[in-house]
Design a protein around this nucleic acid. Structure first.
Lengths: 340, 340
DNA sequence: ACGCATCGTCGATACGCATCGACAAATCGA
DNA sequence: TCGATTTGTCGATGCGTATCGACGATGCGT
């Protein structure tokens, strides 16, 4: 493998000059720049990452801590991972995977060995056990998810409270007076992932200010449980109930239950869920969705990270960014009555 | 951050001694070993990855090239990624993500900059455009997927031919004389992913030797297309047809079509698909599956990689490993008649 | 008791790049 | 015209580790 010394020799200049051509940190005459660039091209020189890291104390690698994976959630996690990796490249950085198996020790390891310049943590819980470790780290960390106490931390997430409000306002406008939120799958609820709380807070606030009734009922993947919930919702209103089913799997089961009750979404009841546009359109009745915009959250997380790295941030930083959610009408919700 | 020099000083030995304690490449007395280990613990020393890479010419990082993601395939890709990352850690290595956006240039980059000691490529196609580049690289590369010409390459994949055979043998044993294979989603077929061909080759061989009839019909995500295919299959037999629906999304659509025709899997027809056990059990009628064992494929890919790295392989290596698939009966297939 | 191999440790060097100080040449102002 | 900058380049040094040769200490056989 050619080194910068080889390039220097080929171009008839000093090694340091090659370095300055590459970094642009000192003025270089057009003539020598050309000589050096030609030599680089000719030798297909690429700087050695290890040496660069050693000398510059920067690896240009970001550690991405991926969560333990409840099988049914893998697709959504992959969306984050993929967008994060691509965005990082745009900032001339790479992504190193850190799995949750290693726990907090993994964070200390990659930071301690200086494999990474910073960390992005996915799926941060309200009371995440990694937070104490994170606070002690001397590198920038960006959290995807909002912990209960975000002080001294840099966080970003979808605005779940806004999402909750949008759903309720929308369903209320369509004429529903009872709106039923089905719980996420057990794995999610059990983790106390706090976006559930934020979503609920949004729905409740909106319901109160509008004056509709909220039902918070069991969801999950068990058909009987959801059937019970549906029946309860039906019993609670003389009109047509609306359902919010955040989770893809919950949506599937709900669809079957409604069909077995002879209820058609968009005609007899309304259903809103969280799903990507593609998946929503693939449903037998295209699903009206609340889009949590994982790609946008990912992009911003990387941007924040790279900005922090560039700023060479020493002082403790703190910030909280919420990405607006988007509601999209398809066929699974009733049309609002005219003139409303 | 403490360095090995600091450790040496604290332990009252030379820096090189610290290095030898860590690597074990020279004998060290119990006494000094203890002193050094105590100092390491006390200072919470961790070796600097950049310096280590520079001196040893080994980064202990493996590049994982993840494919461009057809949205409906993300979950299965994440399964690979996650298992690969965890397995790599077990061999004391880390995983760096390389996205397909960068194309072949990305491979050259991570290898040229020596960010990685080797590469694992996922979802290698029959006639993959990256193969020429891969053949030219001077680091070990493990392919997941079998290209048409695997000479000079190290490949591993599920044994799709075996999978095809197993499905047909099984369905034939259950008494079906017509077996219908529905195509994968467009995105997969269009890429000429060659596991489709291998699977088909397996089904055809088995069908021929047993003497059942194979139908290869359009699949995809369009309901009308699949409805057509189902009707064709029904028209082709006086008995009960069997369906092989490899893809999760295809299975969903097929299920609805069958139900609209009044056909119950496991009673009137048989359906076999590829899915994880968890997902299979969640179906309204638990799905009999052909398990392609992505986790096992991932584990072996990493093991092969690490073995190659350890062997310090200079000479061109070549190998091809096929992971046996597993068929599991649930409720969506007919029981074989007694005594067969 | 003496030579000899083995054990255990040290010092020095190399790895490839970034960066700092030095310095010659070119540019400028008065 | 001469000092003061600015511009462009070089040489030297440091980053933290791995590894090689050297060397004193120890144990062995005879």
């Amino acid at each position: 493998m050619p080194t910068s010394k080889d390039v220097a020799q080929a171009a008839g200049v000093a090694q340091s000059t090659v370095s300055y051509v590459l970094s642009g940190k000192r003025p270089i005459s057009e003539k020598t720049r050309k000589k050096v660039e030609d030599a680089i091209e000719h030798l297909t020189y690429q700087p050695n990452a290890g040496a660069r890291a050693l000398a510059s104390r920067r690896t240009r690698v970001i550690g991405l801590v991926i969560p333990f994976i409840p099988e049914l959630h893998m697709a959504s996690i992959m969306e984050f991972v993929s967008v994060i990796a691509n965005t990082a490249r745009r900032y001339d950085h790479d992504i190193l995977l850190v799995t949750e198996d290693e726990g907090a020790a993994g964070l200390r390891r990659v930071v301690g060995q200086q494999i990474c310049d910073g960390l992005i943590l996915m799926q941060v819980e309200g009371d995440d056990e990694r937070l104490p470790v994170v606070r002690g780290l001397k590198v920038p960390v960006v959290l995807i998810g909002i912990p209960h106490d975000p002080s001294g931390l840099v966080c970003i997430d979808a605005d779940f409270e806004m999402a909750g409000k949008q759903c309720v306002q929308d369903l209320a406008a369509a004429g529903h007076d009872v709106i039923c939120v089905l719980d996420w799958q057990r794995e999610v609820v059990d983790r106390h992932v706090n976006y559930v709380e934020r979503f609920m807070s949004g729905t409740n606030q909106a319901a109160e200010s509008i004056g509709v009734r909220m039902l918070h009922l069991p969801g999950g993947t068990d058909r009987d449980v959801i059937a019970d919930s549906v029946d309860k919702a039906l019993a609670e209103t003389t009109g047509m109930p609306a359902f919010i089913a955040p989770d893809g799997t919950v949506q599937d089961v709900l669809r079957r239950v409604l069909s077995s009750r002879g209820l058609t979404p968009g005609k007899d009841v309304s259903v809103i869920g969280s799903a990507s546009p593609t998946l929503a359109e693939l449903q037998p009745i295209p699903l009206s969705t609340i889009d949590l915009r994982p790609a946008e959250v990912s992009r911003r997380a990387v941007k924040i990270m790279c900005d922090l790295l560039e700023a060479d941030s020493q002082g403790p930083t703190e910030s909280l960014e919420l990405v607006p959610t988007v509601i999209t009408h398809r066929s699974s919700t009733l049309r609002p009555p005219r003139g409303s």
